[in-house]
Design a protein around this nucleic acid. Structure first.
Lengths: 224, 224
DNA sequence: AGAATAGTTCGGTCCAGACCGAACCATTCC
DNA sequence: GGAATGGTTCGGTCTGGACCGAACTATTCT
């Protein structure tokens, strides 16, 4: 029939375990080098190089050369969105959870979703801000109220991030199956959280680990 | 690393051209038999049977036996959502559109997205209903207003559909890259449109083809 | 019952592509 | 310059899985 877009091409790119691991690693939002991604995928660097070339040709990732390093990142937030959606399906359909990893609980609690906060804490933030009238609307149509914008500015959160992404956006969570906050505000809040030292990111994971004090300060700041 | 859900398993299921074609065919919302799906995918029935078993085991489709026929449909709307999202990416990244099919313009104009209306007409409907205050909110949080519910009832649109799906829901369109209306209301409106004879569906496609009169009546009824 | 139709299972072929060793290119450091 | 480091390209191996013919099972029709 061959009607509509060719989804098999994209899906098969994601469908290789090695490449999938690389993409999952890039969901951390950090740009990673070929070597790091090779370790992530558990393959030799030559193999990884081949995968990365294919992913780049497929438009899923972007490459940036910096001296002898090649940094890779997801091509755009659309790609991140599809990956997160796939994680949602996989988590739902995963045959009886193939031995949930040791880090799973922490990932469900709070993690980075490309450039913003996901997991229970992300959902809590989203719900809290909406309940308090900082945000209005829902889903794609979500927006900061004037009061909300003032509040964020008072905290010192940077919304300027030179990017085409909308100020606010919601993103579906694979673990909680609920929306959380993306867009420039989502990114600004996550950056702010790290800048304040409220949370740190264990090397090489998507986990966002709050300190006891940090979590308290975070909840107080955003009143959730 | 193996953190988070195993997306490669699902993605590789979708990543085979034959299976992808079958899934795309099932996006029409109709339950199809193994033989029909084999034709759709362009493979022999034995091969299709194998694919269908794998898709079923993977939780992407559901099987219903009826006499000597086996009917297959997408497992749930989540699967449809991921497929539509993948189509969005594929359409965006598709290297210079590998020769858009002859039916492409019609598909972009109006098509079935699992059980509701998508394409330009679907987006127009969504925007129109929101502009007129039949719907309030956006994205996931969209809902019928009381006035809107009355109006739909007056037209005779059935919202009862015994399903767990929400009354209203928005769904991202691969062609227009905009939201359109899903959920029980979306389904009710599409069913109603066919019941009124305003549009028909060419056999074996996702196309929704309005007649001249039908389109006029549709626009008048929903005031778009 | 026998014939026709719809699907599945089995066995075997075949190929795309994942993988790695080795050689090669590019950049940085000393 | 030479050595070290990070990536890519090339050539060859090997396997998963897509595919189909043939045989088999299940259901319906007459």
């Amino acid at each position: 029939m061959k009607d509509g877009p060719d989804i098999a091409r994209i899906a098969s790119l994601i469908g290789d375990p090695g490449r999938a691991n690389m993409l999952a690693a890039l969901m951390s939002g950090k740009a990673l080098t070929a070597g790091e991604l090779a370790r992530e995928a558990g393959v030799r660097v030559q193999t990884a190089s081949g995968h990365l070339t294919r992913l780049e040709e497929g438009g899923l990732i972007a490459r940036e050369r910096q001296g002898r390093h090649h940094y890779f990142r997801l091509a755009d937030t659309d790609v991140a969105g599809v990956l997160e959606a796939l994680m949602g399906l996989a988590a739902a359909k995963g045959q009886l959870r193939t031995r949930t990893g040791p880090r799973d609980p922490e990932l469900r609690r709070a993690r980075v979703c490309y450039n913003h906060l996901a997991g229970e804490v992300g959902v809590m933030l989203y719900d809290g801000l909406r309940a308090r009238g900082v945000l209005t609307g829902e889903g794609e149509g979500i927006a900061l109220t004037d009061a909300g914008r003032a509040e964020m500015a008072a905290l010192g959160i940077d919304l300027s991030a030179a990017s085409r992404s909308p100020e606010c956006k919601s993103c579906l969570d694979w673990s909680a199956r609920r929306s959380h906050l993306a867009g420039r505000l989502g990114r600004g809040i996550l950056d702010f959280t790290f800048a304040q030292g409220w949370a740190m990111r264990p090397e090489g994971t998507r986990i966002v680990r709050f300190s006891g004090i940090g979590e308290g300060a975070f909840r107080k700041a955003f009143n959730v």
